[in-house]
Amino acid sequence: MLTLDGVEIEQGDFRLTADWSVGAGERVAIIGPSGAGKSTLLMAVAGFVALTAGRVLWQGGDLAGVEPGQRPLSVLFQDQNLFPHLTLAQNLGLGIDPDLRLDTGQKARVAAALARVGLEGMGARRPGQLSGGQQGRAALARALLRARPVLLLDEPFAALGPALKAEMLDLVAEVASESGAAVLMVTHDPADARRFAVRVVLVAEGVAQAPVPTAELFANPPEALRRYLG
């Protein structure tokens, strides 16, 4: 279980609090107006943004002082999820060993992960030779290899068209349920939340509210959400 225990983040005028938990294997969307702090919250969980107060806990253990790369999570950023100078196989291999010293078994796992996301046989290509959707798939395949119990998505598919985005979200859902990973996904699109998430965190007016079941939230939206949906 991932717990945000009395978390406070302050950056100049900006202030955000959060105090809730997400269970193993749960899929949660984080929505809210732009500038409310959705990405900041995610980056705080990932260890890139320092907390002003409170703790982030995984299975009861405090993550304070744990380097981003050592945390039990994988991140898909908004962009730049792949190194353009490395091949897909190398990019994925970094998910297994940051020094890229892979034995044959590990290389086979890389090939299998590529096949799993529909990029079979493309290991020798560079990211620049792929479409945006294929790049997203490759990044997801690397998260699959890293096999961390939490997956953080910071709108990585925002630049894709609606059909392709829906396809990617379904793929994420499949991959996450296979590995039993919890997913926290930032989005500004309520349709993404409806399609993908079991529960939704609303970030508005300095508070990341505790997750609420998706159907319930949209059936009876609170004032802040009504203003955001317009």
């Binding site: 981003p68 100078h85 940051p98 020094d99």
Partner: peptide, 25 residues
């Protein structure tokens, strides 16, 4: 700016970072 966080999130550091990120870039 472009790859610092990605490298950190993959725990790419030390000689691996030099070999696979810094020297090529």
């Amino acid at each position: 700016a472009d790859y610092g966080r990605l490298a950190e999130s993959l725990n790419l550091r030390g000689f691996g970072r030099l070999r696979w990120l810094v020297l090529p870039r």
